[in-house]
Write a protein that binds this DNA or RNA. Structure first.
Lengths: 146, 146
DNA sequence: TTAATTGCAAACATTTTGCAGGTTC
DNA sequence: GAACCTGCAAAATGTTTGCAATTAA
């Protein structure tokens, strides 16, 4: 029944993720694999708290500190993007391709905005001695008043 | 020496500010006047903490709670713009005309970017049932590596 | 074996809140 | 006098840190 070279889809995915973490210089510990697998499964915007919750609900064993450590590490290594829309908490975005966001002020929801053609040409160059290392565009939206 | 209708620049400015607060539906209490006078004197980006510090250094009598209350009120009434670049604290920007920001990740500094011609045409419209109520563009910059 | 990671709880920083006392209209 | 504002301290978040025990290479 058990095959050391098993190639079920689940096994293959887990192996691919392990290698991906390795390639980014991240030691693939069980907790990191769990968190990365959950986050990278689909494009989503979760707060640290929501990640924690989702992990516990899945029966994974992780501590808050490890969640924060891992999220920070994934951001640092470019596997995750951190979005600050509201000064109270951060969102972690598993879509790392360039894009922008709608932020619904009323319900605290974040939505991707594909805007590949936003004219950057009109933006002034960074001040002397500095270089641009990122751009965040947040469009605040609200429910229409009835 | 003392003239009830005195029109020294300082008096005139204070009177104008009082009226401005009134026009925005803000009861001009001494603390609010102090805070507004300091913030609106020039375009600047201060955190709540920096506002508090500056007030105390000027000999003004204000509590932390009042600083937060007042900043929140000024934002709500459109005299100040709140900018969230970093999930740990907010900046209060006394320039309320549309503009964007450079955020220096290395020293936590915020700088205005006048970008009146940023192409908004390419951005998709807000989702059904919502309307756009603001746009924040933050260009993250870092000191150039030597 | 040696270095890195984890978990827990305590520490932190920022912002909010409850309420008594004071101020404004 | 009624409503509103202020200050203090305590509470509520969200995030980080110190350190001993565990795990990975």
């Amino acid at each position: 029944m058990s095959n050391p070279d098993a190639t079920t889809p689940a096994h293959a995915a887990r192996r691919a993720l392990t290698q991906r973490l390795h390639r980014h210089g991240i030691l693939p510990t069980p907790q990191r694999l769990e968190i990365a697998a959950m986050l990278l499964a689909e494009a989503q915007h979760l707060s640290a708290d929501q990640v924690m919750e989702k992990m516990l609900r899945c029966g994974a064993v992780v501590s808050k500190a490890t969640v924060y450590n891992t999220l920070g590490l994934l951001v640092e290594r470019g596997l995750l993007r951190q979005v600050s829309v509201d000064s109270s908490k951060s969102f972690y975005d598993s879509n790392t391709r360039p894009h922008h966001h709608f932020y619904n002020v009323d319900d605290g929801t974040l939505t991707d905005v594909e805007a590949p053609h936003l004219c950057l040409a009109d933006l002034p160059p960074p001040p002397p001695g500095t270089y641009a290392c990122g751009m965040d565009v947040v469009l605040r939206i609200r429910h229409r008043k009835l």
